[in-house]
Amino acid sequence: MDVFMKGLSKAKEGVVAAAEKTKQGVAEAAGKTKEGVLYVGSKTKEGVVHGVATVAEKTKEQVTNVGGAVVTGVTAVAQKTVEGAGSIAAATGFVKKDQLGKNEEGAPQEGILEDMPVDPDNEAYEMPSEEGYQDYEPEA
């Protein structure tokens, strides 16, 4: 019985440690998101679009440190934060509304985080759909 109880105690310690790591990862992701939003706020009209992409990228980098179902929630929060940063930029006159959601080359930025393969159960990952990809044929 002692062996059984000791095993359960060790398992509990492992769960607590994993929860603490997840909590730490979420806190880091939130900190990076805040950094990115402050970065966007300090940019001029020309830099705002690039700044919004930076927020998304920093958040995406930190999301990889967070495991399990938390990833889905962090990704949703990050996307809403990026959308909010863009709205703030438009409201303050840093950028025109028609410039939001495009990178410096004018290509749409939507789907940055949505296409990231995420499995809350950590069982399997699927690649994003290939609808947006084109076949590449090298020139002879």
Rank of each mutant, 00 (worst) to 15 (best):
E28P: 01
I112W: 09
G7L: 09
T59K: 01
A91W: 07
A30V: 09
A53P: 01
T64G: 09
I88A: 03
Q109C: 11
Y39C: 06
A27S: 12
L8K: 00
G41T: 08
A107E: 14
G68F: 14
L38I: 02
I112F: 05
T92P: 10
A69P: 02
P117I: 03
G86E: 07
V15N: 00
D115E: 13
A89K: 02
V3H: 03
N103M: 11
V74F: 13
V82P: 02
I112L: 05
D119H: 15
I112H: 12
E114V: 05
I88G: 04
D98F: 05
M1C: 00
S42Y: 12
Q79N: 09
E114W: 14
L100E: 13
S42M: 05
T59V: 12
S87K: 03
S9T: 03
D119R: 01
F94G: 03
K45Q: 03
E110G: 02
Q99M: 15
Y133A: 11
Q109P: 12
K80E: 02
F94D: 05
G36W: 09
V82H: 04
V49A: 10
S87G: 08
L100A: 09
Q109S: 09
E131Q: 12
E46L: 02
L100H: 02
G14F: 08
G31S: 15
M116E: 10
A91K: 04
A30M: 13
S129D: 06
G7Y: 03
G67H: 10
K10P: 00
T59M: 01
N122H: 06
E13A: 12
V82D: 04
A56W: 13
G73F: 08
N103I: 06
F4N: 00
Q24L: 07
A90I: 02
A56P: 01
A69E: 03
G73N: 14
V77E: 03
E139K: 11
K80L: 12
L38K: 10
G7D: 00
K10H: 05
K34F: 07
K34E: 00
K21R: 12
D115Q: 07
K32N: 06
V74H: 02
G41H: 14
N65T: 10
V49T: 13
G14Q: 14
G84Y: 12
A107F: 03
L100N: 06
K10C: 02
I112E: 08
D2Y: 13
K21N: 04
V66W: 14
M5H: 00
K23P: 00
P138H: 06
V55K: 05
H50C: 12
T54L: 06
N65I: 12
P120V: 06
G31H: 07
E131S: 12
G47A: 15
Y136V: 12
K43F: 11
G47S: 11
N103Y: 06
E131W: 09
K102D: 05
V3E: 01
K58H: 11
H50W: 10
T75E: 06
D119K: 02
T44Q: 01
A17H: 11
V118F: 08
K97I: 15
V16K: 10
T72E: 15
A85V: 08
T92W: 11
E61K: 06
T22Y: 14
G132F: 12
K102R: 10
K102E: 15
V37C: 09
I88N: 02
D119G: 08
K32W: 13
P128M: 09
K32V: 05
V66R: 06
P128H: 10
N122Q: 14
K32S: 02
K58L: 10
G73H: 08
E105C: 02
M5Q: 00
T54D: 01
T72P: 02
Y133Q: 13
H50V: 02
V63Y: 05
E61I: 05
E28L: 09
K43P: 00
D2N: 08
G68W: 12
E126Y: 02
V82Q: 05
Y133L: 15
T75V: 13
E35L: 14
A89H: 08
K34I: 10
V52N: 00
E104A: 15
K12D: 00
H50E: 03
E57A: 07
A78M: 13
K10S: 05
A19Q: 01
S87P: 10
N103P: 12
G73Y: 04
E126V: 06
K97L: 14
I88L: 13
P120T: 12
V71I: 15
N65C: 06
D115F: 13
Q24M: 12
K10A: 11
V15D: 00
G93D: 06
F4Y: 01
T75L: 14
N103S: 12
V16S: 08
E114P: 06
E126R: 08
E123V: 15
S129Y: 12
Q24W: 11
Y125A: 02
T92H: 03
E114L: 05
V77A: 10
D121E: 14
A107P: 11
P138M: 07
E35K: 09
V74A: 09
V15L: 08
E130Y: 04
V74C: 14
G41N: 03
A17E: 12
A89S: 05
A53H: 09
T22K: 00
V71D: 02
K12F: 12
D121C: 08
K21W: 10
T72K: 06
L38W: 05
V15C: 05
E137H: 06
V26I: 12
A11I: 14
G47D: 11
K12M: 12
N122T: 09
Y136P: 14
S42Q: 06
K60E: 01
G101L: 09
E110W: 03
K97D: 13
K23L: 12
Y133F: 13
E104D: 08
V55L: 13
V118L: 12
A76F: 15
A19G: 02
E28I: 07
K32E: 00
M127H: 10
A107Q: 03
V70S: 01
A124L: 07
P128N: 13
A85F: 05
Y136G: 04
E20H: 09
E130R: 04
G84N: 12
G68Q: 02
G132W: 04
E130D: 10
A29M: 08
T54P: 04
T44P: 01
T33F: 03
V82L: 13
E139D: 06
N122V: 14
V55C: 06
E46Y: 10
G51L: 10
P120L: 10
T64E: 08
S42C: 07
N65Q: 11
K23I: 02
V49S: 13
E28D: 04
K12Q: 08
A124I: 02
E139R: 13
V37F: 15
A76W: 13
A29R: 10
K6I: 11
